[in-house]
């Protein structure tokens, strides 16, 4: 049958553009912005990152706006996770000690020779094991784009399987894996779809090895490192969501989606949430609270971003008070 789905770039771009034309007002806008806050993977991935910077990131993720109750009359949700380099994992885990292991802010670590992935596999696996051992809840890996573009797809699938195995903890549980495709380097939507399918399958194979049944480990596919332009775009995210959707319809397993890089404004975030809402309305059992759409929860949809959070806060404050807060009213992470 349809072994290798193709993507028509013109129509995909056209469809993606329709999501930006929805008119989101009042209560719907507030719900969307609040939901987006809860989906942010608050990120810092710089050579100059320090433990202090990581700590303030954690604080920001736990309490995005310290004046929320005063100004808004209610507390905002916390961000989904902090996303840092492996060297900062322990700092973050310490800082967040005492959090609710299920509902609290997660610690995500990039690994596997981020951002290029141009390292021997054993180094990349050691990188992963170390981050997991340090307490990372989630591992954001990069694939070997060189191997993918050269057509060595089995090699890419095998490295994903290996990294996923390295995400397994001593107690048999898994750190959630996010596979970064770096779509800006894959260039075509055909490639994006193929890489998505490949990553989704590879992760599921390891779940199967490990006897994880049901909907799976809640692993993710992710667009970008943020180090390559273009990073996340609407058409790319649409194609990846379609791959996730088709996989769910085929197998009943759920895979998460994380667009990362380039999503800076509240308005953009709403465009993405419109896309998720209208593309992933699959009536999944157990997610009735989200209209049967698991991707409208932080367990299955994230925004990889650093500056987005404060714009979300600013727009929420405006909606609630009718006044724009100054930029300096919101703490930097």
């Amino acid at each position: 049958m349809h072994a290798r789905p193709t993507v028509d770039a013109v129509m995909a771009a056209e469809r993606a553009a329709t999501f930006t034309k929805r008119s989101i007002k009042a209560s719907a806008k507030l719900a969307g912005l609040t939901l987006a806050v809860s989906m942010v993977d608050l990120t810092t991935l710089e050579g100059k990152d320090s433990p202090e910077k990581a700590r303030s990131l954690c604080r920001k993720a736990v309490r995005p706006w310290e004046r929320d109750v005063d100004v808004l009359g209610e507390a905002l949700p916390h961000a989904a996770a902090v996303c840092v380099y492996p060297a900062m994992v322990r700092v973050c885990v310490d800082e967040l000690r005492g959090r609710d292991p299920d509902a609290g802010v997660k610690v995500a670590s990039v690994a596997t020779g981020f951002p290029s992935g141009q390292f021997p596999l054993e180094v990349r696996l050691a990188d992963t094991r170390r981050a997991v051992a340090d307490g990372a809840d989630e591992i954001d890996m990069v694939i070997s784009r060189g191997a993918f573009l050269a057509g060595r797809l089995d090699e890419v699938a095998e490295e994903i399987r290996e990294v996923k195995r390295a995400c397994r903890r001593g107690d048999g549980s898994f750190a959630h894996l996010k596979v970064i495709l770096e779509t800006g380097e894959l260039e075509t939507l055909d490639h994006v779809r193929r890489a998505s399918d490949l990553a989704i399958r590879a992760m599921a194979e390891v779940d199967e090895e490990a006897g994880v049944g049901g909907v799976g480990t809640a692993d993710f596919i992710k667009t970008s490192t943020g180090k390559v332009q273009p990073a996340a775009t609407m058409p790319v995210t649409l194609v990846m969501l379609e791959a996730i959707r088709d996989w769910y319809l085929e197998t009943g397993r759920l895979v998460g989606m994380k667009p990362a890089g380039g999503i800076r404004t509240a308005k953009q975030a709403l465009h993405y949430l419109v896309m998720v809402k209208e593309t992933m309305n699959l009536g999944v059992a157990g997610f009735e609270h989200a209209g049967g759409n698991p991707w409208l929860t932080p367990a299955y949809f994230r925004f990889g971003a650093s500056t987005l959070l404060n714009d979300l806060l600013r727009q929420i404050a405006w909606l609630k008070t009718g006044k724009y807060q100054a930029g300096y009213d919101f703490a930097e992470a």
Partner: peptide, 27 residues
């Protein structure tokens, strides 16, 4: 160490998801 806590109940995000899934406000 100061323990960081969030005053928000986990339901803030859940409620937002439910409202968002429910539909768009009239425009």
């Amino acid at each position: 160490r100061i323990t960081v806590t969030s005053p928000s109940s986990p339901s803030a995000a859940t409620r937002a998801a439910s409202d968002w899934a429910n539909g768009y406000a009239p425009a």
